[in-house]
Design a protein around this nucleic acid. Structure first.
Lengths: 341, 341
DNA sequence: CTGAAAGCGCTAACAA
DNA sequence: TTGTTAGCGCTTTCAG
């Protein structure tokens, strides 16, 4: 394992010169640079990450904090992770997976104080999140994926729910649908003020008004059974219903199953749009779900980019970046059936 | 940020004493240990990871090498990752995600030479995998998740495909099924010698013989369409077919859809067992899939455990650990219909 | 444009 | 049972 001293000797220069060609922190004549580079190549030299980290006070590693529940990660979260990983790698950083949820304060305190990580990406952010207070107190650079209650002074990247709901409703309206249900997350989520649930609810109302159509919001559990119950409820209170927008993938599948069993054809009788859904899941359904595809990898990449900017000394001013989900029309939406009048 | 020197001063001991209470490398009297611990607590001391790594020549970080294709990770791979992460954390190690596939030699060469990682976990191992040769050459400790062509001298953890196929077939047989199809990975996979495809094929034949029943293997694409085609082909060549074992989740869903459209009831007319399937996906289907649930987290944890043992100086002898998938009976298997005779 | 040398914070001989 | 000290391999002043 060649060290910097070996390289210096072989190139006939001092260690500091080798260091400078590596970091580019000061001008080096073309001639010596080439000798040094050659020596490195001949010795298969790679700088020792630990020594470098110790001397420079930075590890070039960022931590991805996410709670690792037994249930594992969904497709969207996985895309965050891969997007962030690749963005980090492209910038010469590494990404460490840290199973630290909203409540694991001590774990994080230790992690952040060990100086192993230059900054943090927080996933599964909750409205009040201990990790946020803690990192702020420790003055550690970090970026949220999602949003907390009060985000002043914080940097965050999130899905643009307002835009996404607007686009979904516009799609249904353009197909002639005039009565739409929005199957949201559960009542409990809404009551607890869960961001996506609240924001999509508001956006749904705005969209209805803008298009001058009618609709209902039905909260339900994020399960297939929840979807079934929700669609029954929605059809009961709005028999004219021809379009459904649904927040959760499992609920979406439940809705398809329930409609099928009720003898209704999708999309002939009812059109269904699934929100924040990944392509693989959308394609598992039959017919494949028309969906608003979550910009998973893009979110992860954006968060990483912002974090790295801040590591470069950027100030800690408020910053928000919202990415909309893209409409992907598959098999569950079609022209609205003309109602009898 | 308190350093070890600060702690030593405050406790009235030398730095080495502090170091030794931290590492436990040599006996310390209870009295001084307590003073040191107290000093640490008062100063919120956390050892600097980089300094520690430099001095001890180990980072306490292991790398998880996996190709990050655009498609993202499936549920099974995600479970590997979370299982490995938690096992590492429990042992005081961290886990770094490294997007390095079977062919990215140089990337890995650099990574391994930087001394940032103590060892490696390889996912998505291919029959011939450049990463394996390279790590072996560099004498870096590593464990495979999956198997290569020749695994002598290597440590690996894998799903026990033989056992899993055997169990699946036994389940169908116990329900009275006597003609079974096995819908495998694609012809291309088989031709390329892809391990799971080959091993399950062999195991299927063995199981048929053992139970004295008949069956066919149909290779197909890992897609819903592939599943549809496969089940059509199977029923054509074996009209007596009442049981299906299928390797891929998407194909399994395709099979269910195709059978439904053909007017056949599952499990009344045909029973379906899906292999190496995660619970969430199994439950998306309707009826929910009876499946052999992949031991994802257990595989990740086992691989980590073995790697950490080897870091502790354990020799590099061949080691293989195979974990079977567990049968979870859901809604797609039932008693075989009696055939007309 | 280049070199010498002082650390970075810790571990692990060696010495007592 | 404890202290002293020489590095680990690199970055970065300070000099030239």
């Amino acid at each position: 394992m060649a060290t910097m001293t070996d390289v210096a000797k072989r190139a006939g220069v001092s260690v500091s010169t080798v260091s400078y060609v590596l970091t580019g922190t000061r001008p080096i004549s073309e001639a010596t640079r080439e000798r040094v580079l050659a020596a490195m190549a001949e010795l298969d030299y790679q700088p020792n990450a630990m020594a470098r980290g110790l001397a420079s006070r930075q590890s070039n590693i960022v931590g991805l904090l996410l709670p690792l529940t037994g249930r594992g990660l969904g497709a969207t979260e996985t895309a965050f992770v891969t997007g962030a990983t690749e963005a980090a790698r492209a910038a010469g950083y590494h990404l460490m997976l840290c199973p630290v949820g909203a409540d694991d304060g001590d774990e994080l305190q230790a992690l952040a104080t060990q100086r192993l990580l230059d900054g943090f990406l927080l996933m599964e952010v909750r409205l009040t999140d201990r990790r946020v207070e803690l990192l702020r107190k420790l003055q550690a650079p970090f970026v949220l994926i999602g949003r907390t209650k009060n985000s002043t002074g914080l940097a965050c990247v999130d899905i643009d729910f307002e835009q996404t709901v607007g686009d979904a409703v516009a799609h249904l309206v353009s197909l002639g649908h005039e009565t739409i249900a929005y199957v949201n997350h559960s009542k409990a989520s809404l009551a607890s003020g869960y961001g996506p649930a609240k924001r999509t609810e508001a956006a749904f109302k705005v969209a209805l008004k803008r298009h001058g159509i009618t609709g209902v919001m039905v909260p339900t559990d994020d399960t297939a059974a929840g979807g079934r119950a929700a669609i029954r409820e929605a059809r009961e209170c709005c028999p004219a219903l021809t379009g459904v927008l649904v927040m959760n993938e499992s609920a979406a599948l439940g809705i398809l199953a329930e409609l099928r069993e009720a003898g209704l054809d999708v999309p002939w009788d009812v059109s269904v749009v699934s929100m924040v859904t990944s392509a693989p899941v959308a394609e598992l359904a039959s017919p494949p779900l028309t969906a608003m595809t979550s910009p998973g990898a893009a979110v992860g990449a954006a968060a990483t980019r912002i974090l790295l900017e801040r590591l470069g000394g950027g100030a800690g001013s408020t910053y928000e970046e919202l990415l909309p989900c893209a409409l992907e029309v598959r098999g569950t939406t079609g022209a609205a059936k003309k109602r009898k009048r």
